[in-house]
Amino acid sequence: MSSYLKGLANKINGVENKSFTKELDINSLVPSQNNFYGIREIEELAESINENGLMHNLVVRKKDDGTYEIISGERRYRALKSLGYEKIPCQVKENLSDLDAELMLIQANAEQRELTPSEKMEGIKRLEVIYKQKRNNGEKLQGKTRDLIGKDLGLSGVQVGRYKKVDKDLIPELKEKLDKEEITLTQAHTLSSLTKDEQEIIHEEIKDLNAKESKEEIETLVNGIKQPIESNLDKELLDEMYLNKNANDKEEEKKQSLSEKYLTKVKKNEINIESFESRLDCLKELASGYSKAQLLIDDFQHTVRLNIKEFSINYRTLEFYLEGQPNICKVYFQDSDPNQFRRVNEIYYGKVKIKTSVAFKITFDTYLLFGNDYSEGGYAQ
């Protein structure tokens, strides 16, 4: 019965592929050309296999030239080779397409290994290509591509979006710091909103800091970008960190570096990133000009468009009544990030792109649309 149920599940998921276990000559195995993951800690793995034996068989598929492509287990393969193994037990997958083989490779690495942020970002890009090709081939996939990718990598849809933004806009030097856990994903996402020149300035300031010992300094600097620095303690810390390094050196005092000038602008709130309060004022100004609005929600479960007959905006809460409904509803502003709470000119709702000059993004999946001055058109997912 269990075998039947497993087969049924595979049919439903569209990944019905037969397999069998076979002991293969190690020289017949070849690493997959699609494996972009780092091959790390082989010596430690070899030592573990030598002491405890091989815990999981490799997963392979037979190629036309008679060799077997490694889908899951290249680290184990290299460790076993270093130990002098001649035969390796493998699970051989049959009737596995190139797309499904690469998909399985990515899923296996996400499940079995601790991936670096760069590996996750590369995985997201590869999965986007895979699922786009699957849809072009006529496969019926359940759910949005972003959700499928999140499920494959063990990430939420929001995290997938953050990784994509970081991958697209963060400079390589800061990506390296993210991989080394010297900055967090949230910090990297915030920094990716800056220009390349501004990011290079930030990197110059933090490149020599020890991430663990200077956690407070780095956090203060990033928060200064994210929102105005109002705390006297934070301002004093920035002074101590960057503006008074050579107080006794008159020549150095005269030479204020570009990074110091930037940090001065951070302190004076002159950087070109709007504060949460200013964006909230923008929302209130829009709301004051319209007595009614529409609420658009496009999350993982719902795609809805609702008419609001009456609403009010508090500091972090939108309270409103829907037409025909007696109960008050609330939407909380959960993220003050400029990319998640701001005025927008386009709304992606379901399979429709709405262009307008009077709309506001409340959260990553919730919008307010004011008035009737907008146009709608289809777009490709």
Rank of each mutant, 00 (worst) to 15 (best):
K6D: 14
F20G: 05
D25Y: 00
V30L: 03
Y37C: 00
Y37L: 00
R40T: 12
E41K: 11
E44I: 09
L54E: 04
Y68G: 08
I71E: 02
E74G: 01
L80W: 07
S82L: 06
Y85V: 06
P89I: 11
L99Q: 12
Q107Y: 03
R113L: 05
E114G: 07
R126S: 10
L148Y: 07
G157M: 06
Q159E: 10
Q159S: 13
K164R: 06
K177Q: 11
K180R: 13
K196R: 07
D197L: 02
I201T: 15
E205N: 12
D208V: 04
K212D: 15
S214D: 12
S214C: 10
I218P: 08
N232L: 14
E236P: 12
L238G: 07
N246C: 10
S257K: 14
S257V: 03
S259M: 03
S259H: 09
K261T: 13
L263K: 08
L263E: 12
E274K: 11
E277L: 02
R279T: 04
K284W: 00
K292W: 08
L295R: 04
L296R: 12
I297K: 09
K309V: 05
S312P: 09
N314C: 05
I328E: 14
S336W: 00
F341G: 00
I354W: 10
F360N: 03
Y367V: 06
F370N: 03
G371T: 14
N372I: 14
N372V: 13
